[in-house]
Nucleic acid binder design. Structure first.
Length: 215
DNA sequence: GCGTCGATGGCA
DNA sequence: GCCATCGACGCG
């Protein structure tokens, strides 16, 4: 296991820096817009003196109660409550008995949309595999217990825009949602077309998933 | 390289 | 009884 990174300095905290923390308005729009715009942004998690930092390369949009792949399609429950709340908060859930998943609440109050963070490129010389939502959350120490419902405009867990140009983005079907009826076909997974840090295309069926370039 | 399967626990 | 996963294992 590679040594964990210690916070060097934080440009986004300096007055006048071009690097800026994403604010509420960035998140307050449909997940289908937010998901591709989060590609290339940097996720930061601070715990004590440690800082975990990674560049997002893959996301999925879950677009509301009518989307059968979206947890909110089950209605408002203790689990899904934060998705019905304000945008710009973390929806972290626990699944398969061992994995936590980080999602970003999008849209607006009562419109339960979210973006799943699926893969990222570790930064600051951090040598770790973040290609998959379970691995990403585990390596960055993001858990349902500690982080579900936290405000992403706060000081502990947030995204920043480092001013990098928008990468070429491809899209495909979402991973692992075969139960979702016609929604399983929707092209709501977005990824940096040139990044080697994207999670592997899901096995099964021998065929490549339909992928098409955008933008 | 590709398919199959078990681990493991919260949730409806 | 599912499940927005992962990694180990068997095959060839």
């Amino acid at each position: 296991m590679a040594a964990e990174p210690v916070r060097p300095y934080a440009r986004e905290d300096r007055p006048g820096s071009a690097v800026k923390k994403l604010g509420r308005s960035f998140y307050a729009r449909p997940a289908i817009e937010l998901a591709p715009d989060l590609i290339g942004k940097i996720l930061v998690h601070r715990i004590g003196r440690k800082e975990y930092r990674a560049r997002i390369v893959e996301t999925e949009a879950y677009i509301g109660q009518h989307d059968l792949a979206c947890h909110a399609s089950k209605g408002r429950t203790n689990r899904t409550e934060v998705m019905f709340g304000r945008p710009g908060h973390a929806y972290v859930y626990f699944i398969y008995g061992m994995y936590d998943m980080l999602n970003v609440v999008a849209s607006d109050v009562d419109d339960a949309q979210a973006v799943l963070i699926r893969a990222a490129e570790p930064l600051n010389g951090w040598n770790v595999d973040l290609s998959g939502p379970g691995k990403l959350a585990r390596a960055m120490h993001i858990t349902r217990r500690a982080n579900n419902g936290v405000d992403l405009t706060g000081k502990k867990l947030f995204f920043i825009d480092a001013g990098a140009p928008r990468p070429k983005i491809s899209r495909s079907k979402r991973v692992g949602v075969d139960y979702a009826g016609r929604w399983k076909h929707a092209l709501l997974r977005f990824f940096d077309a040139g990044s080697p840090f994207v999670s592997r295309i899901r096995p099964m069926s021998g065929k490549r998933q339909g992928e098409e370039a955008t933008r």
